[in-house]
Write a protein that binds this DNA or RNA. Structure first.
Length: 587
RNA sequence: GCCCAUGUAGCUCAGUGGUAGAGCGCAUCCUUGGUAAGGAUGAGAUCACCGGUUCGAUCCCGGUCAUGGGCUCCA
């Protein structure tokens, strides 16, 4: 059976190409370190990797050597040959080499026959297919080196993972590397510092950001919009404290299921208090403070609740993975007959919010019953059916194009819908989650009084639209590369005077903008206009309003839109109205 | 937490076993110039922290902390 040649433009072809490149890298490693053992080396979304058990640690400094050897192997242009053999024979082959990793993999392959690939004396167990010869692999780069546990299990040995990418031509590789550079410039951590949005400090501790005034404006704009829309959608805001007694977390089950993510308790007057990792228990108590009639439902409690979770130091990452963050949380209490309509409404709400922030592409997942769960099968059947129905409705309405079912991916207390947004570079960010919860209503004995006067168990849905406000900000920063649309921009307009003697005129314009609710400031320094424009462009201010003698003479400004250039002069009042309008429309 | 790497001025980065340098930014002064960098001068650094080796450590060694790339998990 000969391997088919599949073009690189095709996803399968790309995978084949990258997988072959992975073998090429493996051969180079094996030639340079004969004592190294190869484990697994697949193609991944944006390249390939190979996990290697090296006899002694290697470092980044070794990468050029490996690349050089790879080029040598390419020049040899060895044919890549597939050989099939009985599993037992392959086992013997790898056992003889003392290659326990390949033996372990082989033992898990159910087939009686396996395939090996050979290229210039280098042999690896592989399903294939591959490019016909090593000469086909022209352009590649080992991009990084990292540790990775054998089989991803931290109880296993730590291997060395080499990541790489490969392309049929050098031009394509260069293009790809350029794209990576671009992505680096959009990194929210870099922009967060350059645009003076937030910072981290050793003195405060890892995973604990502090928002600077400009970052705080973005946060406040997000929150104001959020509150407004929640009020409009029938939510009531509540506020809950940051700590709660141990008994509360015992009731909620967090001390049983979530303890590893919670911080050690504080002791106050002989009682243990825990920093909250979630807001749910407080909302449950607020609901349960009095009896509720079926007529009141659904009741929707929302809160921008700041929670604290222990995250292992190695996983912290800018605003995306922190130890204290604010969830845009809500808990909806309802009758069983209301769940369908409510979930559908929540999903629409989610998509409305995300679209308003400028995201147009979503990855939507339905996660169903996992092993080890609470609730009856009938409850799961109903809840999964409801979520599925909501997703179907959203699809029919054109709100989403499709969704993926993650079988067994639900939480122990109920099924859920997750929505990830895709940013301008195509990266997916986990944001929204809509979860049916069978657990807390039982634990907190949440009920309502039905039409016939009986006490009934209610259904509770837990949801977050943006997920973590902090993470969402990170997503926005990268999506817009720091160049926020007007309504989100910390500074919306900057007045730039051609000469410093026009300061008074400039200040007048700033005042008019501010009076209209525009976040405006002026730059009246005696720098040249080109300098001021460059500064404003770099700070990604959406509008630059340039004023010189000509404009000052007849009450006008020259409008320059960031990234677009000079738009010509306009009357000040018109410009103020235009910006105010854009901000109001959240553009 | 684990593996590897990194930590020098606000930022980006040079550099050396004899206590540091550039560009940008910042301050002051000059310049008042029409759409992405005008000029001069100046301030600014216990070279992450703690310990060791050494006559002497920013540099070598050890530890700690933080950061980065991953593994794992998740908002």
């Amino acid at each position: 059976m000969a391997d088919q040649v599949v073009p690189f433009s095709n996803p399968a072809g790309r995978e084949l190409f990258w997988h072959s490149a992975s073998h090429l890298m493996a051969q180079a490693v094996k030639e340079l370190w004969p004592g190294a053992f190869l484990t697994i080396g697949p193609a991944v979304d944006d390249g390939f990797y190979y996990d290697v058990d090296f006899p002694a640690p290697i470092t980044e400094a070794d990468l050029p050597r490996i690349e050089a050897r790879m080029h040598e192997i390419v020049d040899r242009d060895s044919p890549i040959v597939r050989r099939e053999m009985p599993k037992s024979e392959a086992l013997e082959f790898f056992r003889a080499r003392g290659d326990t990793y390949k033996v372990e993999i082989l033992n898990e392959i159910p087939d009686a026959t396996v395939s090996l690939y050979e290229q210039g004396g280098f042999v690896d167990l592989c399903r294939g297919p591959h490019v016909p010869s090593t000469g086909a692999l022209k352009a590649f780069k080992i991009t990084s080196i990292a540790g990775a546990y054998w089989r991803g299990d931290e109880h296993n040995k730590m291997l060395t993972r080499l990541y790489g990418v490969a392309f049929p031509t050098q031009a394509q590789l260069d293009e790809h590397l350029k794209l990576l550079e671009e992505a680096k410039k959009r990194d929210h951590r870099v922009l967060g510092r350059d645009l003076d949005l937030f910072s981290f400090h050793e003195e405060m501790g890892p995973g604990l950001p502090v928002l600077h005034p400009k970052g705080a404006i973005i946060r406040r704009v997000i929150e104001d919009f959020w509150r407004e829309e929640h009020a409009r959608n029938g939510y009531e805001t509540i506020f809950s404290p940051h700590i709660g007694k141990a008994t509360l977390w015992e009731t909620s089950g967090h001390l049983g299921f979530y303890k590893d993510s919670m911080y050690a308790p504080l002791e106050i007057e002989g009682q243990k208090y825990y920093l909250k990792p979630m807001n749910c228990p407080f909302h449950m108590l607020a609901y349960n403070n009095r009896q509720h009639s079926y007529r009141e439902l659904p009741i929707r409690y929302c809160e921008l609740g700041t929670v604290y979770r222990y995250e292992r130091s190695g996983v912290l990452h800018g605003l995306l993975r922190v130890r204290g963050f604010t969830q845009d949380d809500a808990h909806i209490f309802m009758r069983p007959d209301q769940v369908d309509a409510e979930v559908t409404q929540v999903l629409k709400f989610v998509l409305f919010m995300l679209r308003t922030f400028g995201f147009a592409e979503f990855d939507v997942y339905l996660s169903t019953r996992p092993e080890g769960r609470v609730g009856t099968e009938a409850m799961w059947d109903t809840a999964e059916g409801v979520l599925l129905h909501a997703l179907d409705e959203a699809r029919k309405a054109g709100l989403i194009s499709s969704f993926t079912e993650d079988k067994g991916g639900g939480v122990f207390y109920g099924p859920k819908i997750d929505v990830k947004v895709k940013d301008a570079l195509g990266h997916a960010w986990q944001c929204s989650t809509i979860q049916v919860d069978f657990n807390l209503p039982e634990r907190f004995d949440l009920t309502y009084i039905a039409e016939d006067g009986s006490k009934q168990r209610l259904v509770m849905v837990h949801r977050a639209l943006l997920g973590s406000i902090d993470r969402f900000m990170g997503a926005l920063i990268e999506h817009y590369a720091g160049a926020f649309p007007l309504w989100l921009a910390p500074v919306q307009a900057r007045v730039l005077t051609i000469t410093s003697d026009l300061e008074a005129y400039g200040r007048g314009i700033v005042d008019q903008l501010k009076a209209a609710g525009i976040r405006a400031e002026g730059n009246y320094s005696p720098e040249k206009i080109g300098h001021k424009i460059r500064a404003a462009e770099l700070e990604k201010v959406p509008y630059m309003l340039v004023v010189g003698k000509r404009e000052a003479a007849d009450g006008k400004v020259a409008v320059r839109k960031k990234g677009k250039g000079d738009e010509g002069v306009a009357v000040v009042a018109d410009v103020v109205a235009r910006l105010a309008g854009e901000a109001r429309e959240r553009r």
